[in-house]
Design a protein around this nucleic acid. Structure first.
Lengths: 145, 145
DNA sequence: GTACAACTTAAAGTTAACTTTAAGTCAATG
DNA sequence: CATTGACTTAAAGTTAACTTTAAGTTGTAC
């Protein structure tokens, strides 16, 4: 199967203009054109778009993704570098997830805080709750004035 | 203890200009000033900065953070809304973490892919590896041409 | 073969979140 | 009380990642 830019955009839920922009920035070296100059996407190109999406979603800037794609085009001499790029990105994601978990913990505390305030009808309740009534996991968020 | 903008910037590892920008955008309604017009941060203000940081790191735009801070200033009549903001943000973070895990899985596959290519000296090895030698968890990334 | 929707390009515009600049003021030190 | 580093403001500048525009071309459906 082959697809136009609009069809691929719909499949991946991105704007067609975004795919054209990626092409202009050199992210899609695999892309071929029809006789009339239209972009022609093949099924295997969707795999490329998925790895690009993966790098983008994990925070890699367009220029670095281009560098990775340049390595892919260059061939086997860049295997080491590509492995290194993937490992570094994996480590970055693990770091991001660790931070996300910390943020989630804080949001859980804040949800508990406002649930408690809601039941009491006022945030002032939090000046009166004895520490032993605050779940242990939230102790680190309590202010030590 | 009280702190200047520069001291707080150093403590939280952000630029002082960023804190001034947040102030200008209305994110720091708790901030007081010295007689001479200098920003004065108190210890309890750091807790505010931490929740702002949490919302920011989980992708909330400045304008929405301002809205949350406006609610905080308004008082107990906004408890429901603040609870709702926290719960929605928590759900958003859970979604982000799920996606992150998928991205991590793909990066792990790609790392394996390039490790294998590195050992063989060529990416072409991947056309020759029988599917039973590909770890099960990576099967979903294999192209079905 | 003629509509017409979807494609093409280059160039300009948009948005968010800062960052920098310039000109001036504050506050701690010797 | 002068120096000096850190602060103040408003306004302009920066950057990334698109998005829109305008003018024109392609390809499919009737």
């Amino acid at each position: 199967m082959i697809y136009t830019v609009g069809e691929v955009a719909k499949q991946l839920d991105v704007a067609a203009s975004t795919l054209r922009y990626y092409d202009k920035e050199g992210l899609l070296p695999f892309l071929e054109r029809s006789g009339g100059g239209m972009r022609v996407f093949k099924d295997e190109d969707l795999s490329w778009l998925k790895i690009i999406e993966c790098l983008k979603k994990t925070g890699m800037p367009i220029k670095e993704i281009k560098h990775f794609m340049d390595c892919c085009t260059e061939g086997d001499s860049t295997i080491d570098e590509r492995l290194s790029i993937m490992e570094l990105q994996r480590d970055a994601v693990i770091k991001q997830m660790t931070e996300m978990q910390e943020m989630l913990d804080m949001l859980n505390y804040k949800s508990w805080y406002y649930e408690t305030a809601k039941k009491a009808g006022t945030c002032a309740i939090h000046d009166k709750i004895p520490i032993e009534n605050v779940p242990e996991k939230y102790h680190k968020y309590l202010q030590n004035k």
